[in-house]
Design a protein around this nucleic acid. Structure first.
Lengths: 208, 208
DNA sequence: TTTCCTATCGGACTTAGGTCCAATGGTGCT
DNA sequence: AGCACCATTGGACCTAAGTCCGATAGGAAA
């Protein structure tokens, strides 16, 4: 991992602890952005890159746990490493239930922190790729006309063109036309391909 | 949830705590099996039912955390609720990382325990359905001959029969024959259906 | 050896899917 | 009114997929 392909955010109200974290992480070769409060972090325009967040649990204003909830609410899925001076078990449980990758108590070993960060970045790198793929998929799906989405939904459930035609009250010919355009717009190379796309987009049926 | 459609396991070396747990959970309407040690629990022939495990962290012999690891190693994915008298944060983190649904400190409120159990059973109920479905899918897949699995793998990647034929070095006619048998044995009603089965079985490609 | 399964193909069709070209009618925007 | 886009369909064809029947051949098990 080079410094430019991922970024580590640090949110900690204690300036000395924040600065030492910043120094440590930067020395390990990562790009770091440090903030003194949750609000500052939320205001920061985050680039679309693999990232992770090192977050102090106790802070004035929004606490670490509240920030975690807020990010979940906003759909921001950045992996979080919590640090705390005086944490308790319920707090830990809540953080971990919320999907935190690690929960470290101060003082922690530097190696431990760096290992946790590496793991978090690794995890988000995968999620990041999936986000890019999903965004592309949704972009293509958004190009479909309403009718085409209906046809796609029916086709990927395995219905024959004539069955789709009956279901949508149109001629088989029309369905073929729509279907062809669906394949084009979705850039699907085969029906199997289209079915897999539909699965990822959760269209067509029971949302499994 | 009635008493017979799920089961709660309790593993705790302290007999008084174990018995009160057993009483509490039984009173809530669940079937309970209690054990004084991890080994006893592992020996117990568990029925294929939605279940959860209430587990004391500290125990002589295998500890709760070690049992969690052992179960993961064995592929037993039963949701675990940990209880502990004197736990610490690293212990909590390890347990939660291992997929525990809850980590309660003694003394805990009874309502809290019952809520955790209900949630764990709920979670395992879904996983249980998926296990049944996967088992059925694998049963069907196991009926395929080696050649048929190859054909299926190629077909679900979206290849045409003639392309599959070229890839496997056979006549298109032969592929059609295999393909027909694949559809029959897999009980697929359409290609879309077969593709979805292949996805669940993770056959055919990059294992996404 | 006989039987069963697997893998292999051919012929003869039927059905389904897909393409190219062309055309009609509605809607919404400029 | 003119234009773009959408939904709709027809005709003519071509290719792909699937089915029924039959047949050969090797290997494994009874």
């Amino acid at each position: 991992m080079s410094a430019t392909d991922h970024v580590v955010y640090v949110v900690d109200d204690d300036s000395s602890s924040r600065q030492s974290l910043e120094f440590l992480i930067r020395a390990s070769g990562s790009t770091v952005h440090a903030f003194a409060s949750a609000k500052e972090f939320l205001r920061f325009p985050r680039p679309e890159l693999p990232a992770c967040l090192v977050l102090d649990v106790r802070m004035p204003g929004l606490t670490g746990l509240q920030l975690q909830e807020e990010l979940a609410r906003l759909g921001v899925r950045v992996p979080i490493i919590f640090i705390t001076g005086h944490g308790d078990i319920p707090m830990t449980v809540q953080a971990m239930k919320g999907g935190a990758v690690e929960f470290l108590t101060k003082p922690f070993r530097e190696a431990e922190m760096l290992r946790a960060i590496a793991q978090a970045i690794e995890r988000d790198w995968i999620a990041h790729c999936e986000r890019l793929e999903m965004a592309d998929l949704r972009r293509r799906y958004a190009r479909l006309t309403p009718r085409e989405t209906e046809v796609m939904a029916s086709v990927v459930t395995g219905l024959l063109n004539k069955q789709v035609a009956a279901e949508l009250g149109a001629a088989e010919k029309t369905i073929k036309a729509h279907r062809g355009r669906v394949m084009q717009k979705m850039e699907a190379t085969s029906l199997a391909d289209l079915v897999r796309m539909a699965e990822k987009l959760r269209v067509g049926a029971s949302g499994n």
